[in-house]
Design a protein around this nucleic acid. Structure first.
Lengths: 137, 137
DNA sequence: GTAATTCCTATTAAATCGATAGGATTAATG
DNA sequence: CATTAATCCTATCGATTTAATAGGAATTAC
């Protein structure tokens, strides 16, 4: 299940991509228009800034802006930062690999084989889609 | 993230498919060979029986056996029983649909569009794979 | 009738999630 | 320079979910 954190984060990025002008976009504006609790959104924006997707300007007339072109922001990368691993089990994760406690040999594990296929297909979608695709009409 | 419940359930089904003979397969045997806590597995087997994947025999020399051919047990169906919705958000779920609180119109939601693609690709994999595929060499 | 097994319900401990609290810091503006 | 408006940061809280355990009832083979 997708966490609210990720969902809100994706919506916020989309909102900024659509509404970015000369001034940065403020949390309060996104919060109102997308029905996201403001304080919760605050922490999400912080994460997105610290991970290099957003820049920010403090103080009056401050807010957030995109650092990269929407076409260069892959959903796979955003998801990894907000949601964590894309794979459904750590033992098939490319970026967050971990051995399973219960498997003596993962190459002999039926779940492993299945989850690699799921991961590959999910990755294909998340790599093909950029913020431009999400924010485009 | 795949729950242990689902992971253990899939492993147990695979184990039964591989090792089924004249006698039903016992929880204790699966538990030992697959490193699954026995009492936890017990409740999972119960779920799988109640949802029509397994039959059981009580008492001495009792155990569990498959009700359908492995080739006719789709991973999508098992996953829905053990893990719940396959979709990452309820608003794109085929079997567990729910409207989002925060979306006035889901056809206008960027996350919705993306998650439909993820769902479709995941479903493709989970419908193509049967228990026979998992338990085959 | 005894041992071995599934069946069933309840409970618990830990982790995660969604959200909130409260102020510190920074910048624009008159 | 004071005020206002925004981000920044850390901590915390309550609810839910997850993984696992407990304890016994019911059933069957022998």
């Amino acid at each position: 299940m997708l966490s609210k954190k990720t969902k809100y984060g994706l919506k916020a990025l989309t909102y900024i991509a659509k509404n970015e002008g000369d001034n940065p976009v403020q949390i309060s504006e996104i919060s109102k228009n997308e029905n996201i609790p403001q304080k919760f959104l605050e922490s999400i924006m912080l994460t997105l800034r610290k991970s290099g997707f957003l820049g920010s300007k403090k103080g009056k007339h401050g807010g957030y802006y995109l650092i990269k072109e929407p076409a260069n922001i892959k959903m796979a990368d955003v998801m990894r930062v907000l949601e964590g691993p894309i794979a459904m089990v750590p033992c098939v994760s490319l970026n967050f690999y971990e051995k399973c406690d219960d498997c003596p040999d993962e190459h002999d594990c039926s779940v492993h084989k299945l989850m690699i296929q799921v991961r590959d297909n999910t990755l294909k979608v998340l790599r093909n889609n950029t913020l431009e695709d999400l924010s485009g009409s």
